[in-house]
C-alpha cells in the first residue's frame, strides 16, 4: 500500500467543513480586533498616512543628471 493510498482513503472530504470553521473563527477574531475599545483614534490616524506624505523640507535640483 502506497502512502497516497493511505491518504486517499483517510476521509479528506471533511476538510471543507474544518476549513469553514477555521475561517469563520478568523473572521470573528478580526471583527473583535477591529472594534476593540480605543481603536477609533488609532484608525483615524492611520487613515491620514497617505495625506501627510508630501512635506518636503526643501527642493533641490541636483547639479548633475540624477537619472
Amino acid at each position: 500500500m502506497k502512502l497516497s493510498d493511505i491518504i486517499g482513503n483517510s476521509g479528506l472530504s471533511i476538510y471543507a467543513q474544518i476549513a469553514l470553521v477555521i475561517f469563520v473563527a478568523a473572521f470573528v477574531a478580526i471583527l473583535i480586533w477591529l472594534f476593540r475599545p480605543g481603536s477609533t483614534e488609532r484608525f483615524r490616524r492611520d487613515a491620514q498616512i497617505p495625506l501627510d506624505d508630501e512635506t518636503p523640507v526643501e527642493r533641490r535640483t541636483p547639479p548633475k543628471d540624477d537619472a
Binding site: P56, V57, R60, P62, D65
Partner: peptide, 9 residues
C-alpha cells in the same frame, strides 16, 4: 524642466 527637482523629505 531641464532637470527634475528632487524634493527632500
Amino acid at each position: 524642466p531641464g532637470r527634475y527637482e528632487v524634493p527632500v523629505v
